[in-house]
């Protein structure tokens, strides 16, 4: 019998950007929802509710955008679990086996989940989709933000999207993606819990500490 081995899977930039994303998405969703539908009306003109909501939204927009860029850059420099190929299981025959196997496991067709050290195949594909949603959210958000001053950096960078998709269309897109990401977050936490209990490799703890339990026999 070989003992389980501890392996450093998620390096610190991966974990750091993950938690920055978590905080940013929560703050951006709450403040963004308020900006779209100010559900609190205050009695006093001395308040600055919308002002603060917008301020927080813009500050965390920068946090989120920087976090996204750092994570994309890390795809070039990180370990094998953080690089681009880890997010494209569809590119290899082995990856396809994992996609089908994981799908069968989720749909109760198979009892065993394929053994992987990093992301499981379906999770990896979901994350690549989420990275794209993040990008659309960042770009549409800064395009709308740029309207505060025509000719400003953000207006010059993304302002051309406004006539292309229409201001209202861009705002609707920004709004819908927020809900898609909330749906994703529910799914993400659930799947983490499920795999934690079934794979018993400490996946939930690994996003805090970076280490996973690896079975040398399975690898």
């Amino acid at each position: 019998m070989k003992a389980l081995e501890l392996r450093y899977v998620w390096e610190w930039p991966v974990r750091l950007t993950h938690w920055f994303n978590v905080i940013a998405i929560i703050v951006l969703s709450v403040t963004g929802y308020y900006i779209g539908d100010p559900f609190v009306s205050v009695p006093s003109t001395n308040s600055y509710v919308m002002g603060w909501m917008r301020f927080l939204h813009f500050v965390f927009a920068y946090v989120f955008a920087i976090s996204w860029v750092v994570r994309i850059v890390w795809m070039f420099f990180g370990n094998q679990y953080a690089r681009f190929p880890a997010f494209a299981p569809w590119a290899t025959r082995e990856g396809w086996k994992h996609i089908v196997g994981t799908f069968n496991y989720y749909t109760f067709l198979k009892k065993k989940v394929p053994y992987v050290v990093g992301h499981n195949a379906l999770a990896a594909m979901a994350y690549s989709g989420v990275f794209v949603l993040f990008l659309i959210q960042i770009v549409s958000g800064f395009a709308l933000y740029g309207q505060f001053q025509p000719g400003s950096f953000w207006d010059s960078a993304f302002g051309w999207l406004l006539p292309m998709f229409g201001n209202q269309g861009l705002r609707l897109t920004h709004h819908i993606i927020m809900w898609l990401l909330i749906g994703f977050a529910i799914h993400h936490v659930y799947s983490g819990w499920l795999m934690d209990t079934k794979e018993k490799n400490g996946v939930m703890g690994s996003i805090f500490g970076g280490y996973k339990f690896i079975d040398p026999d399975e690898e």
Binding site: Y106, K112, M178, W179, W193, L194, T197, E199, K200, E218
Partner: peptide
């Protein structure tokens, strides 16, 4: 969006109950 979020929660809740009751699919270390 609210419907989508609620449907996701319900769907995964149900999946979770089914998975919790399901035995023998753990990685048997």
């Amino acid at each position: 969006g609210l419907g989508l979020a609620a449907a996701t929660a319900v769907a995964f809740g149900a999946h979770g109950v089914a998975s919790a009751l399901r035995k023998g699919d753990e990685t048997d270390t």
